[in-house]
Deep mutational scan, measured.
Amino acid sequence: MQRVNMIMAESPGLITICLLGYLLSAECTVFLDHENANKILNRPKRYNSGKLEEFVQGNLERECMEEKCSFEEAREVFENTERTTEFWKQYVDGDQCESNPCLNGGSCKDDINSYECWCPFGFEGKNCELDVTCNIKNGRCEQFCKNSADNKVVCSCTEGYRLAENQKSCEPAVPFPCGRVSVSQTSKLTRAETVFPDVDYVNSTEAETILDNITQSTQSFNDFTRVVGGEDAKPGQFPWQVVLNGKVDAFCGGSIVNEKWIVTAAHCVETGVKITVVAGEHNIEETEHTEQKRNVIRIIPHHNYNAAINKYNHDIALLELDEPLVLNSYVTPICIADKEYTNIFLKFGSGYVSGWGRVFHKGRSALVLQYLRVPLVDRATCLRSTKFTIYNNMFCAGFHEGGRDSCQGDSGGPHVTEVEGTSFLTGIISWGEECAMKGKYGIYTKVSRYVNWIKEKTKLT
């Protein structure tokens, strides 16, 4: 034993070699072989497995989906700052455009905790909710729209109204504003409101030439003092309507412009014939205590009207009353817009006519005020429907199939267009061939041609 100890002390290297040989010859039971080890760690190889990531292109799944990435790591994937920024906006807080917040056709661009709407022409605001041009839906104005110097929408209202708090709607500024039905039992019968379409306001006024200088022999019209197929109006439903009495009662109609003036057809009036105007009328054979009678003290036909040349060209006249009318729910003026808007309103496509005229061709006159909704007829169809001249200051309205029309005794009465609950004068009943005849239409004086003249002559002093 002493000898062994001496050998170990003198030859430590020998001992180490012996131990190493023993270990190498022993069977290893701690580690699995290569094949079995792979069965336990069965993990798919990654895209760049075996390579240094710093030297390969980034992978979106590896960089940002398996674990949260930084902007720089995302930049490695896209290799483009702009594309990385677009991805980053949604990656950080989701897609803010998912709810489609942009209105009126706006395009949404996502941002971090926010979004941006790219608005089409005519709109602005956070969600493109603000109209900035009158060309689109009248700028959301209830009545009139004008573009300011910086191309912003400025709404306005006709006389007797003021802008509401929203700067879009119009509200009454006087007790009985024009064009409004205020009798409670008839307010439910107000005709369907007309909503502004998209309009090209630059070209809204037709490029028409008034044929002022045409000389033409007097034409022989049949029954051209021209509501057939209409309905009984309720008291106060058309408070701007008046009836004219002269040699015979209810020979023509008219509309209240203001307390002192009536507008009617020029062919209705004769110099030297006494005319009485009755406002607030409903049943011409009954006294309903809503009527107001006034005498006409002055007749002003349009300066281009000449019955000797043509009885229905420039067929418009103004009547001055001896005493002002007292405005109330049964006696209310009709609204008159400017030339541009009167023309736009007419193009809405349908209007209402009213009167006490004959209820059928050569038949009896109506006792109760009649009204009828009539569609506008395109000019080409209008011209083809008659052998008589249709001037540019006239328009056609009615039904091709016949059966409904204005008729004798309705002449001078109103053709009105309702705009968001307020009625505007767009025409004056003038003439036609018979009444409600198939293929024939009622012919009306186009008020847009005469609004400046009306307003100039009827100013209240």
Rank of each mutant, 00 (worst) to 15 (best):
N113W: 04
K438S: 15
P12M: 15
S448H: 08
N283P: 04
R140L: 14
Q241Y: 11
N138I: 04
A265F: 02
Y341W: 08
I309E: 09
G421V: 03
V228E: 11
G105A: 04
N283M: 11
G21A: 13
Y201G: 13
R379W: 08
V269T: 06
G403L: 10
N113K: 11
C382F: 03
G403I: 14
W453Y: 02
F238L: 07
N452E: 07
R364P: 08
K347N: 12
P239W: 01
L321E: 00
C335K: 00
H282K: 06
N135V: 10
E66D: 08
N393S: 14
E98I: 09
R358Q: 12
D212G: 13
N222V: 06
S184G: 07
P333L: 00
S156C: 04
V228M: 06
A173C: 06
S365Q: 15
R364H: 10
D315W: 01
R384F: 04
I256D: 01
D249C: 03
V199S: 07
G122P: 13
E165T: 13
L318Y: 00
I443T: 06
C102A: 00
L20Q: 02
F196C: 06
G398F: 03
F196D: 12
G402N: 10
P301W: 07
I17S: 02
E67A: 10
P120A: 08
I210W: 12
R180K: 13
R384K: 13
G398S: 04
N48V: 06
P324M: 04
C396R: 02
Q408H: 15
R294A: 03
G363K: 14
L318E: 00
V374A: 11
M8Y: 12
T225G: 13
V248G: 14
L41T: 08
C141P: 00
P120I: 04
M65K: 09
F388T: 13
V416K: 01
K247L: 07
S99D: 10
N306W: 03
K234M: 06
A265R: 02
D110L: 07
G355C: 08
A265D: 01
H282V: 11
K446Y: 01
L103T: 09
V447Q: 00
K274C: 04
E54D: 11
I309V: 14
I210C: 08
G160V: 01
K234C: 03
Y201A: 13
N147K: 15
M8L: 11
K339W: 08
I299Y: 08
A337Q: 01
N151F: 08
F388W: 10
P333D: 01
L383Y: 10
S448A: 12
N80F: 04
C28K: 03
T276E: 12
G351E: 01
G439N: 08
R46G: 13
K51Y: 07
Y330K: 05
T218D: 07
V273Q: 05
V353I: 15
N310C: 05
F123K: 05
V56F: 06
K247I: 10
A317L: 02
L14D: 02
F78G: 15
W88I: 15
T271Y: 06
G106E: 00
E86A: 15
V374L: 04
D110Y: 06
F31G: 15
T218I: 09
A279M: 02
C145R: 02
E288N: 06
G253M: 15
D95Y: 08
I429T: 12
K387D: 12
S114D: 14
S107Q: 11
I256A: 02
L211S: 13
